[in-house]
């Protein structure tokens, strides 16, 4: 836990000076996808619910935020809050339907529901189908803080990421988080202790959907575009990949995984469809050789050489997650 705190301080410190050296547009994308991956990890790594349709929340939020900014001309912060609320509401509906099933059935129901959102995005007029919502404006924050350039928007996106990350940290390390982890480890036992486990599972599903919505809503302002890519099932698959490569059930793993996958997209864009083959090979390598993911293996290494005590062990192997 202490380690996580130091890492966050270091992360913010580095994040504040990075624009001096790096490409702020790329970094903002990393923050958005990292937050999306963290939100998904809250569900799969801490509550043990492997959903396969999280793009629905990310994508729906992206559309809501883009539409509110462009067509209604809402202020930035209001549009993003609206996108969070709509994702949370969607999460409540999807969760209520899916949460009664477990394992592969749960995954399939979430996939089916997210496909409904995808087809709605294709068909509904306000999403503008194949084109998506282009040229999303970046109105001033709170009406007076100019965020129209990448350099100005960067700090806002960094702040959104830190806020979302802290929210997840708090949820994991809360009384609710303890109950959630107990349900992940042994639901029957949690029931026998008197817990209405369905309520907690629905609760974490909604929280995860809301934070995924925060990531998606912010992304629309960053990229100035909401498109079918955001709601496509490939996005649901990619967020799973980010979390597994980075380390399931670790706070920082999804951040590392997201950075890696976004970097692959940006720097290997020239190879086109071969990207999917490389992602497949990466997934294979993780499942075969370092099942805890990058962060998970690092933490295990720290434990082995005695730098980390046995407390707060959450990292799971890929096998455990998919089982």
């Amino acid at each position: 836990m202490k380690l996580d705190r130091y890492l966050l301080i270091a992360f913010v410190a580095v994040g504040l000076v990075l624009p001096l050296f790096g490409d702020t547009f790329f970094l903002m994308k990393v923050y958005c996808f990292a937050l999306f991956a963290c939100a998904f990890n809250l569900l799969v790594g801490y509550a043990g619910l492997l959903a396969f349709g999280h793009a629905a929340f990310f994508g729906a939020a992206s559309y809501v935020s883009a539409f509110a900014l462009k067509s209604w001309g809402w202020p930035m912060e209001v549009a993003i809050i609206a996108s969070v609320i709509s994702s949370a509401a969607l999460g409540l509906v999807f969760g209520a339907i899916a949460i009664r099933r477990t394992g592969i059935y749960f995954a399939m129901i979430t996939l089916a529901l997210s496909q409904i959102i995808y087809f709605m995005a294709v068909q509904l007029p306000f999403t503008q189908g194949e084109d998506g919502i282009h040229g999303v404006p970046r109105p001033p924050l709170l009406g007076f803080i100019n965020v129209s350039s990448d350099e100005q928007l960067y700090y806002f996106v960094l702040a959104v990421f830190v806020f979302g990350f802290l929210a997840i940290y708090r949820i994991v390390h809360s009384p609710f988080g303890h109950t959630m982890r107990s349900i992940r480890d042994n639901e029957t036992r949690a029931i026998s202790l008197g817990y209405d486990t369905q309520h907690y599972k629905l609760g974490v599903f909604v929280l995860s959907a809301a934070i995924a919505g925060l990531a998606g809503g912010t992304k629309a302002a960053v990229v100035q575009l909401a498109s079918l890519t955001d709601v496509h099932f490939q996005m649901s698959g990619e967020v799973i990949l980010m979390v597994i490569v980075g380390g399931v059930g670790t706070l920082w793993g999804p951040v590392i995984g997201a950075a890696l996958i976004v970097a692959m997209h940006d720097y290997l864009a020239s190879i086109g469809e071969w990207m999917i083959v490389i992602q497949g090979l990466l997934f294979l390598a993780v499942v075969q050789f370092f099942r805890r993911g990058i962060m998970g293996e690092l933490l295990a290494l720290l434990s082995r050489i005695g730098l980390r005590k046995g407390t707060d062990k959450n990292e799971a192997t890929t096998g455990e997650t998919l089982a």
Binding site: R170, I171, H173, S174, P175, F176, G177, H178, T179, Y195, H199, Y200, G203, L207
Partner: peptide, 10 residues
Amino acid sequence: GLAYRFWRAD
């Protein structure tokens, strides 16, 4: 009655 409090520190 604390178990639902996701906003409180453990």
